[in-house]
Design a protein around this nucleic acid. Sequence first.
RNA 1: GGCUCGGUGGCAGAGUGGUAAUGCAGCGGAUUGCAAAUCCGUCAACGCCGGUUCGAUUCCGACCCGAGCCU
Length: 330
Amino acid sequence: MTEPVLALMGPTASGKSALAEQLAIAFEGELISVDSALVYRGLSIGAAKPDYPHHLVHIRDPAQVYTAADFAREAKDCIDDIRARGRRPILVGGSMLYFRALIQGLDDIPDIDPAIRASIEAQARVQGWPALHQQLAEVDPAAAAQLHPNHSQRICRALEVFRGTGKPLSEWQQNAEPRSAEPDPDYECIALCPEQRATLHARIERRLEGMFDAGLIDEVTALYQRGDLHTDLPAVRAVGYRQVWSFLQGEFSLPECRERVLIATRQLAKRQMTWLRSWPSLGWVLTDAQGRILPSEKTAESGGETGTATDASSAEKLWKSRIMQLMRNF
RNA sequence: GGCUCGGUGGCAGAGUGGUAAUGCAGCGGAUUGCAAAUCCGUCAACGCCGGUUCGAUUCCGACCCGAGCCU
């Protein structure tokens, strides 16, 4: 069997990129970015674009919409391609739905005509989402039962799948084999994160200052002046870009803008932590206030309640131990 | 020094003689094609001391603090 793909996860500003670069060099690997903002050209400073080369960075125009499904497909191709060249693919990033789409897979639902979504959103503007939730309940009660009446995006998705395919979303999802919580042997998932929340917040704050100093405002201004971009696009909704965009429109002062970016970034980190806490079989790599990896047993592979490693191949064990060893020296 | 207005949760800000909206932040959660998105849940307050009252955050008085005006 092929060795697993290393997947390095973690909240924003946790230091993933620096570690990833070291891993890439140490393992003759190639990095694949798992980042929903970095896919867009023009998002560099505010998206913390790393200097070291990554795949799947700057591959779309900000006017386009990139999706988790696009990512899963392209990342898979990328992994195959890298392996075909005899190198090791390493995934790095914090877009957890992208990781999930790649590792756990998405159901094979056909593309939906964007016009359908547009009409649903138009309908929602006049009727409100709870009304659409009700309509969903008539055609797809299973999906509706799992969604709050205000959950705009997911109600929209369920509705557009039904209208576009004539088949309820919940049925599409039943076709696939049930998702297991078992660790996927094809991926070795590691999370890098400061042990203390306060440390992460301090890192976020420091990095944000650097972004503003490096010209974040100018970067967003360039996007703003294109004239064809708007706040409904994912690229413009990204943390930092959205707030600076509003600042450019005169909605608030620069100090308030900076404060809002800071808050939004912390909130992003929190949501990422929520994903990570329930991620199956995740190896936690905790760091101290100086960014050094803590040597305690907490850094060892977790989730091994039973002897899951007993039947692991020696190649796999070697792979793991090399990662762990490298990380101790980080 | 005098007068006026004001002091409600971390912040902003309603309100009532029977212990108090809401927004933001914080914290927790969800997450199958926009996910750095979207949504849900939740903690937490009436400056201080007396008085009136069955009962005061709400009424009265003193005091403290803040803003403004006056001398």
